[in-house]
Design a protein around this nucleic acid. Structure first.
Length: 571
RNA sequence: GCCCCUGUAGUUAAAUGGAUAUAACUGCGGACUUCUAAGCCGUUAUUGCAGGUUCGAUUCCUGCCGGGGGCACCA
């Protein structure tokens, strides 16, 4: 419908000899201003230096000619009831009863495909998210990336993309030098493997390393040397490293299962790209964009880019994160094809790092601008200060999930888990991801009002009505006289907007628009059906209401799927 | 010091340059005793400050103030 309105406006502009302009079509917040509204007259008035209201009137006259007589199959298909001007020069479109009835029917016939946007398909995109570090805690920070990344991957899939979900495990780097030193000095891997909480023991060692390193500066050099040994495939170092990976992977699998995350397609760790780095160095040298500086190998940027240099190799010759990332991206292009897009869902603290990487990849000719995207999320902040694994003050995901389940109340185990995870996810997905969040138990585990629980509960209640309705014999009800009320409910006025919301979410790569929309939709449902009994013998509109509720539950189901939130059987 | 992000009811958020800035939480008040009460209804704003662009600015630009992050061998 939005496309049709755009089309007829363009036709009118042409007939009035007005140049094509960039106007917008949107939904007014208040339905008394119509279902769609355009600012085209105000935009054009600026160029033509005329009164916007007068121009709007002129355009409306032409529009009316186009949409009337409202025969089916004509422009607008008789689905636009009226067009009016309002306010400073808005042109408002009011849709007809018929349009809303047809859209409910269309939702029911599309079912699971309702809201899907077809972008032609065969567009491959890698979404890299979660990316926890081996032998480190899976914390709220990784939780954000996991939840937002999973949802973005779902939105892209829903929008017709061929999505590769990649978990870029942090399984390489100087941190493993530190861990190897710590294990050799103070730990016992056999005991750690047998423990109930192996990761916690590894983190304890990591924390101890940093405590000791503050007293003894030589430890840092020892760690770098240990990592250098690892990069040279020293047998003892490799053995410790492999055992740590096994411990961590087991833990991650458990967490992802608990979080009800779509399984990853690939889990190449950074180490996988170890033997793919040399070609990148060759490319850098060939393009002549690298240089040696204080023993390290770096890439420098043009002054106007306002970027600090990017380090690829340390003075001891071992690799840095950036080089492994470049190697990964080059490899991916070879593996998945030249048209691949790559999206990294990573914390905002790495925004400038990604600017460096994208700039370098452009200079190397790996990717053009727009094919590499960084979706940044704000940090969880704590009233007490910054959270740091090195210092050992972290909040474990495990504790959060346990606390969430405790707050979900005294219900059966399965429902409790679905509600707890839903509340956690919704808290991350209800807001623009870029902003920081002050960590607060009440907030992240909210199950009241604007929450995942509210959406789940509303969906469950709607399903419950549909289930009860099966016992009702519809033929006994006098539904033939007036099967559909003349007045259109607000619920119908929101329902048909779902595909537009999904599209907008895809364009901005921000799932919170879906979360906001679903809350509004659920609230409209509750406003009406929270007070009105539908299943009554004398309800002559029963079949209309049941169709509407079905369309509502289908929309909630698809919408919540995009957020990765499950709907329990009952609550 | 330089660079990036951010600032909206008491609190947490929403708002694609548009119309009377939208919700939720908390507080107080209320309805029904009904298909699930984790629900429904009522009750709060100088959008950090000062300018600018615009018919129109929470949104774009400039300056200032507050908060967060980054800036050489961590990831």
């Amino acid at each position: 419908m939005k496309g049709q309105i755009e089309k007829i406006i363009k036709e009118v502009l042409k007939s009035l000899n007005i140049e094509d302009v960039n106007f917008s079509i949107e939904h007014p917040e208040d339905f008394k201003n119509g279902d769609y509204s355009t600012n085209v007259a105000m935009i054009c008035a600026k160029q033509l230096k005329t009164n916007p209201r007068e121009l709007a009137e002129k355009i409306v006259v032409e529009l009316r000619n186009l949409i009337s007589p409202p025969a089916k199959g004509e422009v607008g298909g008789g689905l636009i009831e009226k067009v009016e001007t309002a306010g400073p020069g808005f042109i408002n479109f009011y849709l007809s009863r018929e349009f809303f009835t047809e859209s409910v029917g269309s939702i029911l016939s599309k079912g699971e495909d309702w809201g899907k946007n077809d972008n032609g398909g065969n567009k491959k995109v890698i979404v890299e998210y979660s990316s926890p570090n081996i032998a480190k805690p899976f914390t709220v920070g990784h939780l954000r990336s996991t939840i937002i990344g999973d949802s973005i991957a779902r939105v892209l899939t829903f929008s017709g993309f061929d999505v590769v979900r990649d978990n870029h495990l942090g399984d390489w780097g100087t941190q493993f030098g530190k861990l190897i030193i710590a294990i050799n000095k103070w730990g016992n891997l056999d005991e750690i493997e047998k423990s109930e909480t192996p990761i916690k023991l590894l983190v304890d060692l990591y924390v101890k390393f940093h405590d000791e390193a503050e007293k003894d500066g030589a430890l840092e050099d020892e760690a770098r040397a240990a990592f250098a040994k690892l990069e040279k495939k020293d047998k003892e170092a490799i053995d410790i490293w492999k055992r740590c990976i096994e411990i961590s992977k087991k833990e991650f699998d458990r967490i992802y299962k608990k979080l009800q995350i779509t399984p990853f397609d690939t889990m190449y760790g950074e180490s996988f790209f170890e033997d793919k780095m040399a070609v990148v160095i060759d490319d850098v040298k060939e393009k002549n964009i690298g240089k040696e500086s204080e023993g390290a190998f770096i890439v420098e940027f043009a002054e106007e880019k306002n970027l600090s240099p990017l380090l690829l190799l340390k003075k001891d010759g071992s690799s840095l994160y950036a080089l492994r990332d470049l190697a990964a991206d080059k490899w991916r292009k070879k593996e998945y094809g030249d048209n691949i897009k790559i999206i990294n869902e990573v914390g905002a603290e790495q925004t400038e790092y990604f600017r460096q990487i994208f700039e370098t990849e452009a200079m190397l000719g790996y990717f053009k601008k727009g094919d590499r995207v960084h979706i940044a999320h704000g940090l969880y902040r704590f009233a007490e200060g910054k959270m740091s694994t090195r210092k050992g003050n972290v909040i474990w995901l495990e504790d959060i999930i346990n606390e969430a389940e405790k707050r979900a109340g005294d219900i059966n185990e399965e429902t409790k888990e679905v509600v707890a995870i839903g509340a956690l996810k919704f808290n991350d997905l209800k807001r623009d991801s870029l902003r920081d969040i002050l960590f607060n138990w009440e907030e992240i585990l909210n199950i009241k009002g604007d929450s995942g629980t509210y959406l789940q509960y509303t969906a469950v209640r709607a399903n419950s009505i549909l289930n009860k309705a099966k016992d009702f014999r519809l033929e006994t009800i006098n539904s033939k006289l007036e099967p559909i009320p003349a007045e259109v409910t607000d619920l119908e006025k929101y329902l048909y907007q779902f595909p537009e919301v999904v599209e907008y979410s895809y364009e901005s790569l921000q799932p919170h628009h879906i979360a906001t929309y679903l809350t509004k939709l659920a609230s409209e449902f509750n406003t009406f059906y929270g007070n009105t009994q539908i299943l009554k013998d004398e309800n002559k509109y029963m079949s209309y209401h049941l169709d509407l509720i079905k369309a509502f539950t289908q929309t909630m189901k698809n919408g919540l799927w995009l957020l990765g939130i499950e709907i329990p059987e009952r609550m």
